[in-house]
Nucleic acid binder design. Structure first.
Lengths: 221, 221
DNA sequence: GTTTGTGAAGTATTTCACAGCC
DNA sequence: GGCTGTGAAATACTTCACAAAC
């Protein structure tokens, strides 16, 4: 039995709330409580966890510390992950400065850019490297994850290069959908897409002529 | 027939590739081509579009310009959306400086922070306002969307305030899951969650003892 | 010949509901 | 009494496959 991808996608959320509960000092938590915190049903949480084992105790719930530990193991968060950043423009610098990665075990250990004015510069303790150094450095440092923060027009090309260096996971900040061979995973970060999927529902309430028509068609029996 | 939420979530991606195709000068596109670009099946694209109407021509495909127009109408992107930003720390400033929102019709028209050192300051043409001004300004400017860029500990409280001001859609950059009443939509932007859902698969290849065990249990039966 | 739009079929995912355990 | 773990039932979503349109 394969673990569904949606389930894997939810595990990090469980990790996040469990850490908050631990910080708060809670020792035990029930699927009901987790469900309230995450706005999902208790049954879904129990079912998700059941793909990986039996972590709870009937009548009590789950031990926060031990469930957290188990999930960290399952997600392979019990180690350090070395990451390459490509693109050190405005966005890339913000990513380098983001303090949220390191405490979670994600360390940016190399930065690349093909702009000659950026190369050689020191940023957050790293020397910006030319793209031509990517194969050597990615191999030497055994990097498996990359963050792409280049302009949309260059993203596909950059991802191709990363893939040929053996990178298997890409976090893509460029507002384009990139194609990768089977076995290479991409997650996109695009705030505009997120906003656009919410305006759909706002539009329904406000309603332009065109929009109302569309919703009505969508709502036909 | 309700439009499934997953479908709405994909429409912005269609908009994005259609714009790229238009820039490239393409006039027509088939569901097959769109599918190749987005790594999904042609049938899914046709089915998704069919929730809203009939936009294609048999034998030819879809007109790029007109499909784009239709989708923009459906998603209510044929107007300007005014947005409030809460939190003008490191992250909030990066968001204010991000050039990707305005061309898509998303305009940040107010910025709030409860740090007295930030209030009154001019940033990107806006004066940072104290939180106490939120009800007045959100109402006056008829703001329906907010971007939250405050520390995790304050996010729930900020969202509560936004909701009580009538905000119906929130883009949450804080690494916590916030609870909202029915009818208020939240999308989270958390690069760490995205990375963590990819390490699961990387771990399977590398394999710590604990992780291999977990995957094996997951793969039982 | 090509490609759409769509019911029907096939999968996948979520929820139910309850036996079993604390 | 409370809560987990889980088959079975219910829903949701995707893919198939083909008639109709060009």
């Amino acid at each position: 039995m394969e673990v569904p991808e949606v389930v894997v996608g939810r595990l990090p959320q469980y990790v996040r709330v469990l850490r908050d509960l631990q910080k708060k000092g809670d020792r035990l938590v029930s699927s009901k409580e987790l469900g309230d915190l995450l706005q999902m049903t208790p049954a879904q949480i129990r079912k998700d966890l059941s793909y990986f084992g039996r972590f709870g105790k009937q009548g009590r719930g789950y031990s926060v510390a031990s469930l957290l530990d188990q999930l960290k193991g399952i997600l392979a968060l019990d180690r350090e992950w070395r990451i390459a950043l490509v693109g050190v423009g405005r966005l890339g610098r913000a990513i380098l400065g983001y303090p949220g990665f390191a405490p979670e075990g994600f360390q940016i250990v190399a930065a690349f850019d093909d702009d000659q004015r950026q190369v050689g510069q020191a940023l957050a303790g790293l020397i910006v490297q030319p793209m031509s150094e990517m194969p050597r450095i990615v191999t030497e440092k055994d990097i498996r994850i990359a963050i792409v923060a280049v302009p949309a027009a260059q993203a596909q090309n950059v991802v191709n290069q990363l893939v040929s260096c053996g990178v298997k996971s890409v976090l893509n900040y460029a507002p384009v959908s990139v194609q990768t061979p089977e076995g290479v995973r991409v997650r996109g970060i695009d705030p505009v897409l997120s906003l656009q999927s919410m305006t759909y529902y706002l539009g329904a309430e406000l309603g332009s002529a065109q929009q109302k028509r569309a919703h009505r068609i969508g709502a036909r029996a």
